[in-house]
């Protein structure tokens, strides 16, 4: 499996792909699967399933709170894989976003094998760079999985080349120097990062960190191949703890708004190209 066909289809349609994130097990394993399917139905092209971890150094308060709730609820790594299987069954490419230690503990080879057999497309690794010497690149290649590493505004040109050459699927460009979380304005660091990244790779480039509205999605879709949204979706569910149906409705609304955003942004990109 790979996310490549989803990005290719979006490109054919002259737009960016919408990548939606929620942690597994939040608010429960079944509830998490249901929420992720809502993202699929409302227009996400790629799904990111978060693996809740006790020490998430790249996450802001929103994702931390959801992950903690999932861990308090007893979510296991096997539940994450079960979630992937249920979401991937919709036909929408599904990747796991995880800190490294849970994979190492599960067994790198075993994790790759079980993720592949669950129908997962690959892994996003926020605290693992390709030069860490983790064995992930080799295991992912053996099991035909995408390797999605992060690039940052602080990445040197040399590191951009090294990192993107190890990526498969897409490249995750972090729009800001900071952790996950919705921000009022889009980053002025993202466009130059995407431009620098394009110089060293032909892979699609997704931009994440801080995206929460359709307007922001449109703005990013004008220059990136993917718009990644996490905290804003998590926030919707956190804000409806006592009324899950209302949360799910609002989740669908926001996803629809974001899906429209990536299409508007694509049109904008077309205008720019013609200008």
């Amino acid at each position: 499996m790979s996310v490549a066909p989803a990005f290719a289809r979006a490109r054919e349609e002259g737009r960016a792909a919408l990548v939606g994130y929620l942690p597994a097990g939040f608010p429960s394993v079944a509830g998490g699967i249901e929420a992720l399917r809502v993202l699929v139905d409302a227009g996400c092209d790629v799904i990111e399933v978060g693996l809740p971890y006790s020490d998430p150094v790249m996450d802001g308060p929103t994702v931390q709170a959801a992950a903690q709730q999932a861990l308090d609820g007893g979510v296991r790594t096997s539940d994450v894989l079960r979630t992937v299987e249920a979401v991937a069954a919709t036909g929408t490419p599904t990747v796991v976003m995880t800190y490294w230690n849970p994979v190492e503990r599960y067994g790198v080879e075993r994790f790759a094998a079980d993720l592949a057999s669950a129908g997962g497309a690959g892994l996003i690794t926020p605290d693992l760079t390709p030069d860490s010497g983790s064995g992930w690149v080799e295991a992912a290649d053996r099991h035909d999985l995408d390797k999605i590493f992060l690039v940052a505004p602080s990445s040197t040109d040399e590191r951009l080349a090294m990192t993107t050459s190890a990526c498969r699927g897409f490249v995750y460009a972090t729009a800001v120097m900071g952790v996950t979380g919705a921000r009022a304005t889009t980053s002025d660091l993202a466009p130059p990062l995407v431009a620098r990244t394009r110089e060293v790779t032909d892979l699609p480039i997704g931009v994440g960190l801080g995206v929460s509205t359709g307007a922001q999605a449109a703005e990013i879709a004008a220059y990136a191949d993917g718009v990644i949204v996490g905290s804003a979706l998590v926030r919707v569910l956190l804000d409806h703890p006592d009324d899950p149906p209302a949360g799910v409705r609002r989740l669908a609304q926001l996803t629809t708004e974001l899906a429209e955003g990536v299409r508007r942004g694509g049109a904008l990109r077309g205008d720019l190209a013609r200008a």
Binding site: V57, W100, D127, T129, G133, L150, R159, T163, T174
Partner: peptide
């Protein structure tokens, strides 16, 4: 030179901090 003491150490960090 990469901070490995035998099988231990190394650097498992977000890319954003690697340059620093």
């Amino acid at each position: 030179e990469r901070g490995w003491f035998g099988d231990f150490g190394g650097r498992f960090m977000p890319e954003a901090l690697v340059a620093a």
